[in-house]
């Protein structure tokens, strides 16, 4: 299966914008080679701004650019974008509803060797809690490209969570992404597996294993975490009667929490969560870390078997 990192897809999408959209300005905080905004700089250097190692100002300057009617993309690692600059995002971007696209890379434990200080496991939670903010976690390179095209057309603040490591390509070019709409990748009637980001391909792998065991899993890609597609989740759960959420993020405040909120309000059903169990990341090879933090198809299978018993 072809593999591509979502950050590489971001660089490619930006390059296209650099050539075709005069309103786009791209900002980075000294990580342009890692976030791939350097790809944009190559084609449109006049519209590229390096702010230096100053993430708070990165967000403030982006807000100011948006206030002049332009479309800024602000990129850095997810940790520094949503952690260090949180309050600037909150007060100068989300509160005035400015048209800033925050596209952060190197999220989750698969940041790898850099370790826990750099592995954002709280960013979805932080961004999801801010009014006016749209939160998107693409599952692969194709979806990332589609997401970037869509958020340019959408007017308002958006947070896009991307990763460092290569992930399998699950969509083909015919896929149509829409903000606020989940995509169902596999139909099934025994359990709903709802995943986001790099864990979507793991969920699909788990579904194959379950299939052999005679369990028909429905797999949903929850690429827009906010606004949450309540309807799609509920339609699925009304059929399957149980859910497993899967994310490369703390189980507190992320996708699993969003699922629990919707279920609790509308259709209480057993829920098990696969995610980072409220611990920090650490150094290591990304794939080894996924094993260590139990972000694996086999763990999804375990949780599915558990949740089905609770029906």
């Amino acid at each position: 299966m072809e593999q591509i990192a979502t950050r590489d897809a971001y660089g490619k999408a930006l390059k296209e914008l650099g050539l075709n959209n005069n309103d786009v300005i791209v900002l980075d905080a000294d990580l342009s080679k890692s976030t791939k905004t350097a790809d944009f700089k190559k084609v449109n250097p006049k519209h590229f701004i390096n702010i230096g190692i100053a993430e708070q100002n990165l967000m403030g300057v982006a807000a100011g650019i948006a206030a002049t009617g332009k479309i800024p993309f602000a990129s850095t690692f997810a940790m520094f974008a949503t952690g260090r600059a949180f309050e600037i995002i909150r007060n100068s971007i989300a509160y005035p509803k400015l048209n800033v696209k925050i596209v952060a890379t190197h999220s989750g434990v698969t940041v790898g060797e850099d370790g826990g200080s750099h592995a954002a496991i709280e960013d979805i939670s932080l961004m999801r809690s801010v009014p006016n903010m749209t939160v998107i976690v693409p599952a692969d390179g194709v979806e990332t490209g589609k997401v970037i095209q869509k958020i340019v057309e959408y007017k308002g603040p958006v947070y896009v969570r991307l990763g460092r490591s290569k992930v399998p390509v699950i969509y083909d070019d015919s896929y149509e992404f829409e903000i606020g709409k989940f995509s169902t990748l596999k139909r099934g009637s025994d359990v709903t597996i709802i995943a986001c980001g790099i864990m979507v391909s793991k969920a699909l792998e788990a579904a194959e294993i379950l299939n052999v065991k005679g369990i028909k899993a429905e797999v949903i890609n929850a690429s827009t975490i906010k606004p949450f597609d309540d309807k799609a989740l509920l339609e699925s759960v009304k059929k399957t009667k149980c859910v497993v959420s899967v994310e490369e993020h703390n189980i507190y405040g992320g996708l699993g929490s969003a699922v629990a909120e919707v279920l609790g309000r509308n259709f209480p059903a057993p829920l098990e969560m696969v995610g980072v169990m409220d611990v920090f990341g650490e150094s290591g090879a990304p794939e080894e870390l996924l094993e260590k933090f139990k972000l694996t198809p086999s763990e999804i299978v375990n949780k599915v078997e558990l949740v089905i018993k609770r029906k």
Binding site: I49, Q56, V61, A63, T68, S92
Partner: peptide
């Protein structure tokens, strides 16, 4: 009112963004 402000320091950062945008264009 050109910018929502109140949390100190941020308004100035956004003013830099405005000025930078005007320069670029």
């Amino acid at each position: 009112v050109e910018m929502s402000t109140g949390s100190l320091g941020q308004g100035f950062s956004t003013a830099v963004g405005m000025a930078l945008s005007f320069k670029i264009y």
